[in-house]
Amino acid sequence: MTKQKSKHHRLDTTPYFMLAPGYLIYFIFIMVPVFYGIYYSFTNYAFYGKPGFVGFSNYRYLLKDSLFIKSIGNTVVYTVFTVIPQMVLGLFIANALNKSFRTKSIWRGMIYMPNVTSMVAVSMIWLWLFDPASGFLNMVLRSIGQSGIDWLYNPDTAMPCIIVVGVWKVVGYNMIIYLAGLQAVPQSLYEVAQIDGAGSVRQFFSITLPLLKPTTFFLLVMNTIQSFQVFEQVSIMTNGGPLNTTTTIVHQIYTRAFLDFKMGYASSMAVILLFVIATATFLNFKFGGDTSDVD
């Protein structure tokens, strides 16, 4: 009996060995840089030379850095106006393409394609579309007798343009995830609802939406994190202008770190971003994380 018990409790270390490489890589390439970033945020590190400890002075300077404060506002605006449309559109398109018709695969492929295209390439294409002198959009407007618009050079339209590109790029990803979610909804529920006389709208709101709650929650978290990190299209299309109306947190981090070489200061911005994203994710989990199965 005693022998059996000790055999039962013997620690099998093999799984730990198997898991170790993954955790090790994660620790070295993710956690160590994060800790280093936090450490640098309290220094005047300039990429070379020895970082000197400066206490909270980087954080104090952040409070009076009008550009950084503006970048937080811009990032929040970008996040709100990309996350919601890309999820709503993603769900709408997924629903439309969840039916059986001949060209559905082509449509799915076309809508998903921007998501696997390089953001640099995407930005260059949109840059041409928005070009005030010879861009496609202004050519269309002029051909119907309208004045062209200085899309990316007008402080009122630059951010909406960046948002449009962001939504266009990611809507395909939302569609694919929603499609997977939709295909997991049992058909029997719709059949029962139909027998009970529920129309398609009622079925959508009473069956589809509630059963897609885990998918929606997943997308909300992923899209929020991704939107807070917006950088490439800003850097390529507007470089934060005009009048800094499109500069974002990551754009400011890049500018301070790689153009001004103020790595310590940029690290303090990155720590704030980490905090903002962690808070947003926490709130999402707290208020949207109820993923109980209603089936």
Binding site: L127, P132, A133, L152, Y153, I236, N239, G241
Partner: peptide, 16 residues
């Protein structure tokens, strides 16, 4: 015409 020097020559209105 509106132009950002950093967008490069392909968007420079002069060559066009």
């Amino acid at each position: 015409l509106p132009w950002d020097q950093l967008t490069g020559d392909q968007f420079n209105p002069f060559p066009q």
